[in-house]
Design a protein around this nucleic acid. Structure first.
Lengths: 339, 339
DNA sequence: GTGAAAGCGCTAACAC
DNA sequence: GTGTTAGCGCTTTCAC
């Protein structure tokens, strides 16, 4: 209903100037009389005056602390957890996180990125496979907006948080080899990005070091990076003859579990499945999923902290923080039995 | 590094006035010579000029399409899907959705709400149990920002989308009664809100209509509204002697499924479990979860469309759009067998 | 103790 | 065809 109450309205009602109101409301009004101050405060409360954000940030180059978070999809458990980590730090540091979920649509990503730039946010956390450094810089060029890269951005510049995907792949292979398996499969994704390549490389290397056969042409299957993708791949997995499958991530593994179940193939008795990420859901599927743990929540925290660091200290050197991965043994993997 | 390029910079470099630049860049420059236009466009590209958002929205009170979405937690599958629905409409309508996830913290919710108001967004979608109409109005008062309420806001004013929770409860009871069960349990939540009350009421009424016993004191258990909550409740559920359990939502049901499994209680052979919501995960747990379907994605779409309607047409009457619920039979419920 | 005035970057009447 | 001017709502010198 009501038109917006401006500082001018308050001023004229209080019978003082806008300066006075501004000063008082910003806690810089020690020099004004008590009665003036109280009058203004009272009017503020009465009319629910809130200074206009845009007018304010137009002047104050130092922004209200706002950071942008660009993720492919908040509804994926992985990114949901990541965002929660970001939020935790944001809360502690009184930052406002603007979350943009672009559904892996490059056009949208670009658009959102530009939006954030326009809104002159203080910093940016970008989690996106498709987004190249070039694209990012193009949008950010000539603005010194610090940003942090996350996930799948290996060959890129810029401060970032990373996990050791190669090592993750090694761990998965080692676990499966220890269980005595002989025939392996990597259930990868159609749109392969560097982190997946690394996992595969680590996986393959350990297999070969242990004298196992692994042919990248025949022993790698590709599907969509989703539960449905894993589900649809079940038949091909079953026909491959492999007894141990390493999936691109836990979502894919969950889909595979379902698909295998419908095919009456038992996990882990017939096939062992190991995922990647360690999302919270892993404990709730059946069988509980063995996986490579990534500290997703901590990654969110870490990314935000590095970003803050860069914002505040204008820390220009490219900081790359590595986070550890580890094997989490649950029920979806078991020793290999000869048939 | 570079300072921000302003319209003035572009103007002086092009040797024209700011007006000219502004007009040309906003597509209102038909009256200018082609050479001028091209010169400006080229400079814009060269210097990656982006008009300052704040300066712009300071003037054009109306036009930047931004809506705020306040949810308890994006990483919950339910809200994740809801947000996706919102985003779909947003994309179609060229809106920018600002997502705020407040983790059910009332203080944060209020803070975010105020933030959105300050940023003069065009409209608001609020999904929050704790948030009373009073709180909302307090933050929104004297601004005519239209908003839509979602989820758990029964006894409240304002346009909103709703599903028929009472009917949902009825459907659950009917299904269980049809299967021949005699002893029932409602696994509810500690912090009961109106939607849960409605579900319970519908559940109870149908049970009693069919001559089944249901005592709200003894046959209702309370736990946290989460997978972990359901998990922890498993023992109590097992000891209750009930053969059919209706849970507050699917998350709780998933936790219960896991807990029961660890107790070696078979679902559905020993106990039937029916959830609520029909989140995507239901197909991937074991056994696949029977549930009451809510059109979560459509709710997101619907909420956004109603909001748009109110923004554009200044539609002041309180529109309440109801969405249907229905039973989705899967594998977690089965006929009752005498022991 | 208080206020006038300048200006943040932009758009839009209204000249010329 | 193009420029002048007047703000949008606010903060901040600096003068009184």
């Amino acid at each position: 209903m009501g038109k917006k109450v401006t500082i001018r309205d308050i001023a004229s009602m209080a019978g003082v100037s806008v300066t006075t109101v501004s000063q008082v409301l910003n806690g810089k009004g020690k020099r004004f009389s008590k009665s003036t101050r109280e009058k203004i405060l009272k009017l503020r409360d009465q009319y629910q005056y809130v200074p206009d954000f845009h007018a304010r940030s137009l002047i104050m180059k130092e922004n209200i602390n706002t950071i942008g978070v660009l993720v492919p999809n908040v509804s994926e458990p992985f990114f949901g957890t990541f965002v929660e980590g970001v939020q935790q730090v944001a809360r502690e540091e009184k930052l406002i996180p603007l979350i943009f979920s672009a559904n892996r649509d490059p056009k949208l990503e670009k658009e959102y990125l530009e939006q954030m730039v326009e809104r002159s946010i203080d910093g940016l956390i970008i989690a996106s496979a498709r987004m190249t450094t070039e694209m990012i810089n193009q949008a950010l060029i000539r603005r010194d907006i610090p940003y942090i890269l996350f996930d799948r951005n290996y060959d890129q510049e810029g401060a970032r948080v990373q996990t050791d995907d190669y090592h993750g792949g090694q761990l998965a292979a080692k676990h499966l080899v220890d269980l005595g398996h002989q025939k392996f499969l990597f259930l990868g994704v159609n749109n392969i990005t560097e982190n997946f390549k690394q996992r595969l490389a680590g996986f393959k290397d350990v297999l070969e070091e242990n004298g196992r056969q692994f042919d990248e042409d025949k022993d790698v299957l590709r599907t969509d990076l989703s539960r449905l993708g894993g589900y649809h791949a079940a038949k091909a997995v079953a026909q491959s003859g492999a007894t141990a499958v390493f999936t691109a991530n836990d979502d894919v593994a969950m889909g595979l579990l379902r698909g295998l179940r419908e095919l009456n193939i038992r996990v882990p008795e017939d096939i062992s499945v190991i995922g990647y990420d360690d999302i919270a859901l892993d404990e709730y599927v059946y069988p509980r999923l063995t996986t490579i743990h990534q500290p997703i929540f901590d990654l969110g925290i870490g990314a935000t902290k590095i970003l803050l660091d860069r914002i505040n200290n204008n820390n220009d050197h490219e900081k790359v923080e590595k986070f550890p991965v580890r094997l989490v043994k649950r029920e979806s993997t078991a020793p290999y039995h000869m048939v």
